[in-house]
Amino acid sequence: MGTSAPEPNNDDICLSLDGVTISYGNFEAVRDVYMDIPRGKVTAFIGPSGCGKSTVLRAINRMNDLIPGCHLKGRVVFDGHDIYDRRVDPVEVRRRIGMVFQKPNPFPKTIYENIAFGARINGYRGNMDDLVERALRKAAVWDECKDKLKESGLALSGGQQQRLCIARAIATEPEVILMDEPCSALDPISTLKIEETMHELKRSYTIVIVTHNMQQAVRVADMTAFFNAEAVEGGSGKVGYLVEFEETERIFNAPNQQATQDYVSGRFG
């Protein structure tokens, strides 16, 4: 199980995963992940089903805390602090490290309130109209929403709903945006708009995306992490691990590990 990672300058590192092992009860889902995620880039997690990509993604903003029996060993360091230190507030972690899920999940509220609600409960004191417009513009959905801000977010198309959810994440003014297969439920045109939005967003945010679509990783990601899974001794399932973490071009054209080559060339997965 080889691991490989580039070594950016410390100032360029947004998040560091230091020996992260995540378990559900007695079952290890993913083991010994070491990774420095660069600031202001798009990092993609790829790999076959069951290799721990989404589990690692959710660990980055402590979403796994909400799953009974899930626990983490190792450290996730953000802004110089281990986010799993008992003195760290997980709610504040999730404000600074936002999340966009696989299926669009707007609140059953107006488009305006979808954006304003999170900002309001986080104590935002500025001009709410300006914040709503700014968030919707950054998520490239303002032009489609500006004349129907009082209509339900659920009335939008799937692709628009997903961009609304991106805007909702932006509105709490995070530094990092996590996306768990954000295009898997969308049509190709909506997928393209989300990808274009990611290219714009990385000017202001660090983005980490899980994707099953290798072409998407090539199109949007600066860095790519390839995860794989191996059978556990005794045959009680599989444990995920990080095989290789490099610049995307390297992963797809000249990977260090044979398993990476086999996966990106379609030999398994």
Rank of each mutant, 00 (worst) to 15 (best):
G19Q: 11
V20L: 10
V20P: 08
I22G: 05
S23E: 12
S23P: 11
Y24D: 10
Y24E: 09
F27S: 12
A29R: 11
V30G: 08
D32T: 02
D32V: 04
D32S: 11
V33L: 06
Y34K: 09
M35D: 01
D36K: 14
R39V: 03
R39A: 00
K41G: 00
K41Y: 00
T43K: 02
A44K: 01
P48S: 09
K53A: 06
V56Q: 05
V56Y: 02
V56G: 02
L57K: 04
R58V: 12
R58H: 14
A59S: 15
N61Q: 03
N61I: 02
N61S: 05
N61V: 08
L66H: 14
L66F: 15
C70Y: 15
H71S: 15
H71Y: 15
K73W: 14
G74P: 06
R75F: 10
R75I: 03
R75C: 07
V76W: 02
V76A: 08
F78M: 03
F78I: 01
F78H: 03
R87G: 12
V88T: 04
P90F: 03
P90K: 01
V91G: 03
V93C: 01
V93P: 06
R94E: 01
R94M: 03
R94D: 01
R95I: 08
V100D: 01
P104S: 06
P106C: 09
P106I: 07
F107C: 07
P108E: 07
K109C: 12
I111R: 08
I111T: 08
N114C: 08
A116G: 09
F117G: 00
F117L: 15
F117P: 00
A119T: 04
D129Y: 02
L131W: 10
E133R: 14
R134G: 00
R137V: 07
K138T: 00
K138L: 13
A139I: 06
A140P: 00
A140D: 12
W142E: 06
W142V: 09
C145D: 01
C145T: 10
K146T: 05
